[in-house]
Design a protein around this nucleic acid. Structure first.
Lengths: 234, 234
DNA sequence: GGCCCTAACGTACGCCGTACGTCACCGACT
DNA sequence: AGTCGGTGACGTACGGCGTACGTTAGGGCC
């Protein structure tokens, strides 16, 4: 019992690279974002927790790398004749990306840092909107609108998919059990409704936004920013 | 030093109610949602951490109560002549509510559980949409769209407001510093752009969504759900 | 006046992120 | 070939987290 005082062979010297660490981190994150701990990543990899800190200054930096890697998987479709249809394709592809990485939605939404992947996505969308004749502020606003819609929508669906206790599918069951006197509309709608937040519902909402953009872009662009500052100033 | 072996007088027996705990929890949460720990809430209140567990089974339950209390502050405006303008008022009030509680946005987005406050909000919005002639699926989809837009948008602005290291205001500074060869549109737009995610931009995006809804509601409603299932099936 | 139910408490456990000091390996230089 | 320095992997430790569990003290009821 003395010839194996350290049964743990150290990892070979160069075998721990940022890329390898991110690979392991993604596998861990796939079973829920808050399962992603430094210790868990190190355990898969057979490394010591602190070994990761030679490649990432902090956990936040590791997460940033992970999120940027996910956004880097965005694939832009080819440009077609109609810029609105291209924008629809962009929105679908973006939402699909989020749906494919449900664990990433919450941290992405909470993070102010853009990162290269996000910039690439923005550049692509701006190109489409420019072709539609929207310029400057308007293009940014429209892009932000599509992305916000996608993030908000994906956050709901991801959150519901994450709850394994059945709270997911039968939110409607909770709703139909409400006091029917109050909330009659909610109760009426919760029964026959399919999955809340379904693809059909998303397509409908996206359709409205795109129809509005098409109409606005068709009209001559006044671009007076004073038209749109009736917000919550005071 | 022996006559005060327990300088901590116990809290009087009935002085710890759910409401009192939530009050303290909200004060703590106001300085960042992840500052909200059971110990911190107990410290304010001068109570022991475990004392809170007589009123909330788990921390998640406490957070749910806190979020529902926030959503309960939603105030519906009076109905006007134009249902679309009412919907705009709803969207603004909802977003204003989120802007007034930035710490609440991230947990709200991540939580599948609706809660009474959310149901009240939904009922109000459904009433407006019903007046617009949208029924069933369409009303739910439109409501979801507005809420998703608000959540996504508020998550961005809240996240940026949360970063005190100046990463907030000058995301644009990061963007103009990009390699100008790639991302020409982004660089071109980042310079003259005011605050990314400004109220004006939000109003523009909301306007497009509302314009689309008005047009759709104006046309006769075919309601064929097959029109909207061209999503990401396979 | 005495009992008991319950609300408040204290201790303890297993996680977490990570600061800091140690040690072994590999390449380079003599 | 021998040695030396830099670096990457490691171990220990600290403070903080949520919370399971057992203890205690106070107020309401008989």
């Amino acid at each position: 019992m003395s010839d194996t005082p350290k049964p743990r062979s150290r990892r070979p010297r160069g075998s721990l690279t940022p890329s390898v660490v991110l690979d392991a981190a993604e596998v861990v994150a796939a079973q829920g974002f808050d399962a992603l701990s430094v210790r868990a990543v190190a355990a898969r990899l057979g490394a010591a927790p602190m070994a990761l800190y030679n490649h990432f200054a902090t956990k936040e930096e590791l997460v940033d790398g992970l999120l940027d890697r996910v956004l880097g998987r965005f694939e832009a479709g080819p440009a077609g004749e109609d810029w609105v249809e291209d924008l629809r394709g962009f929105a679908r592809a973006h939402r699909r990306l989020l749906a494919d990485h449900p664990w990433a939605v919450a941290p992405l939404v909470a993070r102010p840092n853009p990162g290269m992947g996000a910039v690439r996505i923005g550049e692509h969308a701006l190109g489409i909107l420019r072709r539609g004749g929207l310029s400057g502020d308007r293009a940014v606003a429209a892009f932000s609108g599509v992305v916000a819609l996608n993030y908000g929508w994906s956050a709901f669906t991801a959150a519901r998919a994450r709850s394994p206790d059945g709270l997911g599918a039968d939110v409607s069951a909770t709703l139909v059990a409400l006091p029917p006197g109050d909330f009659p509309l909610t109760v009426a709608v919760a029964g026959p409704m399919g999955a809340y937040g379904s693809d059909e519902h998303y397509e409908f909402a996206l359709d409205q936004l795109l129809a509005g953009l098409r109409a606005t872009a068709g009209s001559s662009p006044p671009l007076a920013s004073s038209r749109y500052d009736a917000g919550s100033r005071s």
